[in-house]
Design a protein around this nucleic acid. Structure first.
Lengths: 259, 259
DNA sequence: CGGGTCATTGATACGTATCAATGTGCGTGG
DNA sequence: CCACGCACATTGATACGTATCAATGACCCG
């Protein structure tokens, strides 16, 4: 058994507990699954598309994103990964992973013992349910991104991204009042939103001109969140940040669920 | 116990078995979960966005799609649902569902006993694994759609959709040679791809002119699949249509997985 | 046979990409 | 400590892909 201190997986546990409280045994079990920690510099690949053997890992500190490269040279950023976000069991259930993951800034990740995770999760029903919820939440974020890219103009997309970043970063304690450090360059922002770097910049400036944000050196301040949300048509419901419905808590606590 | 004949859930079972063989007991159990069958006419809502109580259902015959409506009146189609496709546990784990589902043509759905599904799935590890795989597969399709909408031009998007439809419809036996009936109008196609109805039509005509497809009355014929795939930059890997890796089969059959 | 939905086509407007140049801040090595 | 270099941000001019508007055409169903 390795010694990592008790705080390493905390971001993931906090995230799961935001949905559903976990018994101490579950938390200890999760912490015990850590194989090792790795540090990555900014803009380096953690996983490359097509890789077969990638295991499961959790972002502990820093920021990463999933992406695809097209044959015409274009890049699409699919989703962002903050502290507490984890990868899936691609290598086990699917064959090759269909996208790469790279770091936005210097990032620490924890590698998870995949075999034990799969073999022993059955003894931790609360974790099982929380991970299931997490998967649905991820899907919802992808659907919202499709909607934004497909049917909103560039202005609303940029505003939408700033709203989403604010909510998600606040959840991991990376906001101060209405301010946060945007973890992406404007080129990355364009690649996430399906617009060009130049146009991303123009929309950012326009948001600034219209007093919806203050933007300087990647620090974003949102003086009027409701106004920005309105410009973005941002609802926030899709992030599904509520805790579990009471029925789930009841069922888990009385062992009727996943007995 | 209700009598539905034995064939009702077959599309779902076939889909799951395409990934991993299921013991007879699992199949009987799944069939027993059916609460009732419902018929929907074309273009009718099965679930509306924001609905709280929606259960779980499986498309038995016909075609449906998930969608969102924006406040500016736009519609984004998120994903298609063919025979064997099912909804998630939104109402249980999340609160309201974040998208609606409507039928593309006349459609039959089976309602599933959600409580029994959750309570008893633990006794059916093969089903559990197969559903897990299914969730990852769905996510992969969403990621591919983001990539297509974000970074491909309209021409490639339309070609891509035609490739995806061909693969997915073939899996449920709805292709004949290189032909199939496209289950969407051109307006729906536009809403799925983030382009206008008119432009979808123009791209379809262009594909026809360039001899990559023959299109008439929504019947698509693909004389040279490789050529169309090339125009679409379509890989097909993202659909993850392979069966389970050997390691999964071994683990399940020896009960090492999910003991 | 008439009305409705869906497909098709043309003309025009507009959002966004692209190209190219300049500006700004920051880390590094001399 | 300064100057260089590099990555990132900003701005303008222009080209192009796609939306929009409007009208006609084809097919299906009752």
């Amino acid at each position: 058994m390795q010694e990592w201190g008790t705080a390493v997986l905390t971001p993931l546990i906090m995230k799961l507990e935001h949905f559903l409280p976990l018994p101490d045994g579950d938390k200890e079990w999760l912490n015990g699954l850590i194989l090792r920690l790795d540090e990555f510099p900014a803009h380096s690949d953690i996983i490359r598309e097509g890789e077969i053997s990638a295991g499961v890992f959790v972002v502990i500190a820093g920021h990463a994103c999933r992406y695809k490269i097209l044959s015409n040279g274009g890049r699409q950023i699919l989703d962002f990964m903050f502290s507490g976000d984890k990868t899936e069991l691609h290598s086990l259930l699917l064959r090759a992973i269909d996208h790469g993951i790279f770091t936005l800034g210097p990032t620490t990740i924890a590698r998870i013992d995949r075999d034990r995770l799969i073999g022993e999760i059955i003894d931790h029903p609360n974790v099982t349910i929380a991970l299931w919820w997490n998967a649905l939440q991820r899907e919802a974020i992808l659907r919202e991104r499709i909607t934004a890219i497909g049917r909103r103009d560039a202005y609303a997309r940029v505003a939408h991204l700033l709203c989403e970043m604010f909510q998600r970063l606040r959840l991991v304690g990376e906001t101060v009042d209405q301010r946060y450090m945007l973890p992406v360059t404007q080129a990355e922002m364009g690649d996430a939103l399906g617009i060009s770097e130049v146009y991303a910049n123009r929309m950012l400036r326009r948001l600034q001109n219209e007093k919806l944000i203050v933007y300087d050196q990647r620090v974003v301040r949102i003086p009027d969140l409701d106004a920005l949300k309105h410009a973005a048509e941002f609802d926030g419901q899709y992030l599904h940040l509520d805790g579990a419905p009471q029925a789930v808590r009841d069922a888990v606590s009385t062992q009727r669920l996943m007995p």
